[in-house]
Design a protein around this nucleic acid. Structure first.
Length: 164
DNA sequence: GCCAACGTTGGC
DNA sequence: GCCAACGTTGGC
C-alpha cells in the first residue's frame, strides 16, 4: 500500500536590501507573520519572485553598505500577490501604468529564520572559487532578486559558521 | 561622491 | 526595431 507523501523541493534565493532602509534585524523584529517584500520594480526580479514557493529559503543580502554581504536566512511564507504600493499614489513605488485588474508588480511574504553567525561579505564570496559562477559575484550585476543553487547556498551558510 | 553597468523610455 | 538619452543600482 502506498503511503501518501510530499516531496519538498527546497529552493534558495537571494534578495538584496539596503540595511539603512530595511535590514535583516528589522525583519527579525517583525512578528511571526514577517513582512511583504514590496517595491520590486524590475521585471526579471519580479519573475523570480513569482516562482517563489512557501518554504523556500532566502539569503538576505545587505547592499549599499560597508561591507555588503549575506546577513541572514529568511523563509518564504506567502506566495505572489499584488504589491499594494503600486496603487498608492503617496508611495515612491506608485506605478500609474498598473491597474488592479492587471497588476504589474507583486510581493512575497518572508520571515526571518536565523541571523547568520557572521555576515559573509561580498569580498569574501569573491575569493571562493566554487562561487565564481554565482551571478552575485559577477561584475555589474544589479539584479535584486535571484535564484541560488543549493550548493552555493550551503557553501555560504558553511562559511558563516566558520571564523573569517 | 564617483562611475560602470545595466534597464527603461521614447523618437524615429 | 534601433538606439540615444536618461535613470537607477550598488560596489568601491
Amino acid at each position: 500500500m502506498n503511503a501518501p507523501y510530499i516531496v519538498l523541493a527546497m529552493n534558495y534565493w537571494l534578495m538584496k536590501s539596503e540595511p539603512a532602509v530595511f535590514s535583516f534585524r528589522d525583519l527579525m523584529n517583525m512578528s511571526t507573520k514577517g513582512d511583504i517584500w514590496d517595491g520590486v520594480r524590475n521585471y526579471q526580479a519580479r519573475n523570480f519572485m513569482r516562482e517563489m514557493k512557501n518554504g523556500d529559503r532566502v539569503l538576505f543580502y545587505h547592499s549599499n553598505t560597508n561591507p555588503p554581504g549575506v546577513a541572514g536566512i529568511a523563509e518564504v511564507i506567502g506566495e505572489s500577490q499584488p504589491d499594494p504600493t503600486q496603487f498608492d499614489t503617496s508611495s515612491k513605488y506608485y506605478d500609474p501604468k498598473s491597474t488592479r485588474e492587471a497588476p504589474r508588480w507583486i510581493v512575497v511574504r518572508v520571515r526571518a529564520v536565523q541571523e547568520l553567525p557572521r555576515t559573509v561579505s561580498l569580498y569574501e564570496l569573491k575569493t571562493i572559487p566554487e562561487l565564481e559562477d554565482m551571478p552575485l559575484v559577477r561584475k555589474g550585476n544589479r539584479l535584486s532578486v535571484m535564484p541560488v543553487s543549493e550548493k552555493h547556498a550551503q557553501i555560504i551558510m558553511n562559511l558563516a559558521a566558520t571564523v573569517a
